[in-house]
C-alpha cells in the first residue's frame, strides 16, 4: 500500500501503448462487450493519470485538451461527449464509483449528466473509505492509537511525509475520516480550521 508519492509532474506520465498507438481507443465502440473493456481501460488510465499528477478533482473542459484525452501524435482525441460518458460510466456502480460529479459549489450532483452541471468531478483513485483504511493503517503502524492528532498534522505534517495521503485534498481527507467515524474507528472533534481526531 505504500506507494512512493512523487511530487506532481516530477516524472512524465507514461501512457500505455494502446493510448500511444492505437487509434480505435479514442472511438467509443458500439459493441457492448468491447465498450465495457474500453471503459475499464479508460477508467484505469484516468485514475493512474490523476494519481500521478495528484489530481483529486477533474474539470472536463480544462482537461479535455490535456494529453490524457488528446494524443497529438496520432491526431486523435476523445471527444468531450465521449469523455463525459466514460466518466459517467466510472461514476456508476459498474464502474466502481470511481468519480463523483460535483457542481461549482462543490456539492454532489446526480441524475443524468448534463453539460452545464456535469463538468467537474472527484476522481477517487481511492474512494473515501479506502483513504480511511490507509490512514487508519498508518496510525496503527506508527502506534498512535488513542493519540489526538490534528488534521494539519496528518495531511501536512512532517510525520506523514512520504505517505500516500500526505498533502491530500482537505475536503477529501475530511470525508475519509468521516467514513472512519461512521465505522467507529475514529472520533473527530474541535472547530473549523483546528479539528483534531483520535483513533481507536
Amino acid at each position: 500500500m505504500s506507494q512512493p508519492s512523487p511530487s506532481p509532474s516530477s516524472t512524465p506520465f507514461k501512457f500505455p501503448t494502446y493510448h500511444a498507438s492505437y487509434p480505435p481507443f479514442f472511438t467509443l465502440q458500439p459493441n457492448t462487450s468491447t465498450l465495457t473493456a474500453q471503459y475499464r481501460k479508460w477508467s484505469r488510465l484516468i485514475q493512474r493519470y490523476c494519481r500521478h499528477h495528484r489530481l483529486y478533482k477533474l474539470s472536463l473542459t480544462s482537461t479535455i485538451d490535456s494529453p490524457l484525452f488528446k494524443n497529438t501524435e496520432l491526431k486523435k482525441r476523445l471527444s468531450l461527449q465521449d469523455a463525459r460518458s466514460v466518466l459517467e460510466w466510472m461514476s456508476r456502480d459498474e464502474g466502481g464509483r470511481r468519480i463523483e460529479w460535483v457542481d461549482q459549489k462543490g456539492r454532489v450532483v446526480d441524475g443524468r449528466p448534463r453539460e452545464d452541471t456535469h463538468d467537474t468531478c472527484w476522481v477517487f483513485w481511492k474512494r473515501p473509505e479506502e483513504w480511511g483504511d490507509v490512514i487508519a493503517a498508518w496510525v496503527e503502524e506508527t502506534g498512535q492509537k488513542g493519540v489526538v492528532l490534528t488534521f494539519y498534522e496528518l495531511v501536512n505534517g512532517e510525520g506523514t511525509r512520504g505517505e500516500e495521503f500526505h498533502g491530500m485534498d482537505q475536503e477529501l481527507f475530511r470525508r475519509a475520516l468521516s467514513t472512519l467515524v461512521k465505522r467507529g474507528k475514529a472520533q473527530v472533534f474541535g472547530g473549523e480550521g483546528a479539528e483534531g481526531t483520535k483513533f481507536f
Partner: peptide, 29 residues
C-alpha cells in the same frame, strides 16, 4: 471509418501497471 483488430478486449493492460493498486471493478454495496 476504419476497422482494426480488436486489441481493446484482447490485450491485457500494460504489464507494468497491473499491480498499480488501481481498481476498476464494479462495487456491490
Amino acid at each position: 471509418l476504419r476497422f482494426w483488430e480488436n486489441w481493446i478486449v484482447e490485450m491485457s493492460d500494460d504489464d507494468d501497471v497491473n499491480d498499480d493498486g488501481i481498481d476498476v471493478e464494479p462495487v456491490h454495496t
